[in-house]
Design a protein around this nucleic acid. Structure first.
Length: 465
RNA sequence: GCCCUCAUCGUCUAACGGUUAGGACAGUAGAUUCUCAUUCUAUAAAUCGGGGUUCGAUUCCCCGUGAGGGCACCA
């Protein structure tokens, strides 16, 4: 029986950020690894900045990534699950009042300037603070020692009383965070290193409530890559939003795998691992202490690896879902699935991301495709392409289109009859049927396009050049 | 300004105090395939600086330096 209870506590005040996703992921991994409980709690006390749109984005992004939660609001936003709710802080006002009264009653909180302050224990003295340009009251309190699972022992002095309820009556983050973690029986707090300095406040609050603090584990931050500048990834940075990866049709399992490797490793050289394997191996002491810079290229590579190994019908399905009926490719996926699947089967081994599939296969789904002028110039300058085109057109009616091998044999025998090679026909034929110089093997393009369309396209190029 | 954290190739990272400092991405050069992509082979690339401790330091300690974070009636 595991008693691990971890939570991810985002606030719906902006887009779902890659750093938040990684924090959610590490919590989820730890919960799944230990057989514990993963809680989603919504920290929506900042009423001015909250929005339902961002709330939905949190549910959608986590669902997309496969980070399912055991307690918290339901993914569709209606109702919630778990025995420690409500799971939205905006609905927990009564609980916060109760805890406030407890501190007031025990003398660990007091009112000043209309706000409620938490009272530190120790001798008081006044000092001028250069930074804030005013005199402040300090407290000689004992240092707080945190035994962090990732950082080791961290000691910090908390030397000023701090606000727990604003003068508008609303509780502040530090207070609600601690109260909720107590109420929800959170056993391990796994969060970003940006909270490490806040932790001393939290520990003092736990003490004030007479509760033993949970285990803390502060994970490193995700920083910008060198070409993006300095500092931690912010919402404005390219590639910082989960939504963006979703829209670009990245595979969530690839993103999860990549993210898991930012600040953690399995202890050997393996990188690409199924999520079940990561769950099995993940543990807090193995998490790194230093911040990691985000590398979009490595993520793209990981995405390609997952794409290449996907079963063909799954790949076709994923691609179909990525394009709406308003596009040629999307219409084909719904109206001529057999044809669509054939195109996807020859495309999958050649591309690196699903967002490439549309442009890469456009000529399969419309006879109106652009001819790359540079490629045309190059192809037409070499040898006698128009003669080859004419020869190919003449040979097509008798050619066997039943398989790639048959087509290859057909073209080869044509070439040999003229004392030429397969390559003498390949480039110009490709230009005619696809308008470009990159793509699946010419034989498979022929087979999928079928003889009639191939003939038409060859004739069209011959006529226009 | 005060406080906290961190420091190995460009990037992510590995290395019981004893290794020719390993792997991956990105570079570069070749090979292969009908193009492109994949794949394969090779190649270049790092222990921030200075002091200690030790027979021996990437590893432990101290000081610098650099990077990141926190210092609110934001979360």
């Amino acid at each position: 029986m595991s008693q691990v209870r971890v939570r991810f506590a985002p606030s719906p005040t902006g887009f779902f950020h890659i750093g938040s996703a990684r924090t959610a992921l590490f919590n989820w991994l730890y919960a799944r690894h230990t057989g514990g409980t993963f809680i989603l709690r919504i920290e929506d006390t900042d009423q001015a900045r909250n929005s339902e749109q961002f709330l939905k984005l949190i549910y959608d992004s986590m669902t997309w990534l496969g980070l399912d939660w055991d307690e918290g609001p339901n993914p569709n936003g209606v109702g919630e699950r778990g025995n420690y709710g409500p799971y939205r802080q905006s609905q927990r006002g009564a609980i916060y009042q109760k805890y406030k009264q407890q501190l007031l009653a025990s003398g660990r909180a007091y009112e000043k300037d209309g706000a409620i302050w938490f009272k530190l224990l120790g001798e008081r003295y006044k000092v001028f603070d250069d930074h804030r340009k005013k005199e402040v009251e300090k407290v000689k309190s004992l240092p707080v020692v945190i035994d962090d699972r990732i950082r080791g022992k961290v000691e910090r002095q908390e030397d000023e009383d701090f606000v727990i309820f604003r003068s508008d009556g609303n509780p502040v983050f530090h207070f609600v965070n601690v109260v909720d973690d107590i109420e929800m029986k959170v056993s391990h707090i796994i969060r970003g290193e940006d909270h490490l300095s806040n932790t001393s406040k939290h520990v003092r609050l736990y003490e004030g409530f007479g509760v033993t603090p949970p285990v803390f584990a502060h994970i490193p931050l995700i920083l910008k890559s060198p070409e993006m500048g300095q500092g931690k990834m912010s919402k404005r940075d390219k590639g910082a939003l989960i939504e963006e990866y979703q829209q670009r049709h990245f595979l969530p399992e690839a993103l999860v795998n990549y993210l898991s490797l930012l600040g953690w490793n399995p202890g050997d050289d393996r990188e690409k691992m199924p999520v079940a394997e990561i769950v099995k191996l993940f543990d807090l002491p193995a998490v790194n202490q230093s911040n990691a810079k985000f590398d979009a290229k490595k993520l793209a590579h990981m995405n390609m690896l997952y794409l290449l190994e996907k079963p063909p019908q799954e790949f076709a399905g994923t691609t179909a879902n990525s394009y709406t009926v308003t596009t040629n490719i999307g219409r084909s996926a719904r109206e001529t699935p057999d044809y669509f699947n054939q195109v996807m089967a020859i495309t999958q081994p050649k591309i690196k991301s699903i967002e490439e599939v549309g442009p890469y296969t456009a000529y399969f789904f419309s006879d109106e495709f652009p001819i790359d002028a540079k490629v045309k110039e190059k192809v037409m300058a070499k040898g006698e392409p128009k003669v080859r085109l004419a020869e190919l057109i003449a040979a097509l009616p008798a050619m066997d289109f039943s398989s790639d091998a048959a087509i290859e044999a057909g073209i080869k025998s044509l070439a040999e009859g003229k004392g030429l090679g397969f390559g003498d026909y390949q480039a110009v034929a490709r230009l005619a049927v696809s308008g470009t110089n990159a793509g699946p093997s010419i034989t498979s393009i022929f087979r999928v396009l079928e003889k009639e369309r191939v003939t038409q396209r060859l004739q069209k190029l011959l006529a226009s050049s």
